[in-house]
Design a protein around this nucleic acid. Sequence first.
DNA 1: ACCGAACCGTAACGTACGGTACGGTTCGGT
DNA 2: ACCGAACCGTACCGTACGTTACGGTTCGGT
Lengths: 208, 208
Amino acid sequence: MSERQQAVLDAVLALMVEGAPLTMTAVARRASCSKETLYKWFGDRDGLLTATVRWQASKVRAGNFDRQHLDAGALRESLARFAANWLGVIASPTSIALNRIAIGHAASQESNLGGIVLANGRLAIGERLKPLLEAGREAGILAFDDTETAFRTFIGLVGRDVQIRLLLGDARALEPAEIERDAGRATDQFLTLYGPGRTGPATPRSNA
Amino acid sequence: MSERQQAVLDAVLALMVEGAPLTMTAVARRASCSKETLYKWFGDRDGLLTATVRWQASKVRAGNFDRQHLDAGALRESLARFAANWLGVIASPTSIALNRIAIGHAASQESNLGGIVLANGRLAIGERLKPLLEAGREAGILAFDDTETAFRTFIGLVGRDVQIRLLLGDARALEPAEIERDAGRATDQFLTLYGPGRTGPATPRSNA
DNA sequence: ACCGAACCGTAACGTACGGTACGGTTCGGT
DNA sequence: ACCGAACCGTACCGTACGTTACGGTTCGGT
């Protein structure tokens, strides 16, 4: 993947974000390259989109969180940072545009862009967050049976319906201050559900 | 909206669910009507899609929940039923297909299908759930300041990332048994966060 | 029986776009 | 200086699809 090719993919991303029609001609013009080159490099339109999704995914690899001296405060801080980071990503114009494309493609069964986005978005973040949760459990400040369930609960508390609303065109943008606040609220709620004060199974209060 | 017109819109829904290309020709053939009629009735392709979204929305108006004698058990039962109902809806092929179409349309700013889906999906369910939450608060079995925040927390706990995963083509279908289990788990978690045992602001544990 | 409205089926038109072809240009290697 | 590879810009082709047009049919009203 040469610099020049990456520049082309960035042009595709730019077009996506602008909501401009994503035609090969438009990409070629924006990237100042010929259509012939696009086809030589990426095969066809689908290959171009796939490469773009992978390219974007490769850029999001954010720093992991260190697990040294995990007390309750450090865990809370790590979780809150994680939540704020993720909220910022899913609310970004790039993420929204990319997910829209992928979802549109998932409808017609051609070449699963959806699968790629799923693997590099949802699943990747899970692989990064789960070790933190398990470290918290080993340190005795989290209690859960199933890591996957705990992870998805956290995701739900943090994201709520934000992503769907944005994908559907909800104008309401997420201010940085609001992201911080939501991340903190979700983290506190998560710690309430899975924190040390609570005993028993991962699903608290099996009956009212 | 005549019976015949509704049948046409149901044909559109059927095509959406099948993932078949949504061309006017395909709709006309499936609905056994002429394209001329489609244009006379719905104006253009966009009008047809809009009418379809509205038509589907008009069908989902499920029964409200009565608020007579709200004790903790009845509230939990109502919330769990609500959650299971909603999960069933968002996991249904029709909802998935419709949201995909709407999201695809939200990308290009033409005629906000996204807004319609948002208004009839997310927002409508909020208007139905919030009275239940507030009744619970008045009965002293829920504690929160902001109804909207409590509502969205519930939505997050119930839906988590299910909808996005399905929209992106995640094969994993939601079994009825799993829906029931998730609805119960989410309801329990919600009651833990906002239940009567807990005092103070809507966001518990403002600091770890 | 007749008329007109509504509708079906199909053909036709215009255009947008994915994909290909090709002449001209740049540039590194020799 | 020369060559060939890579690439740009543009013209071109084929097709899919939205939209329109039109002849034929059904059917309720008179």
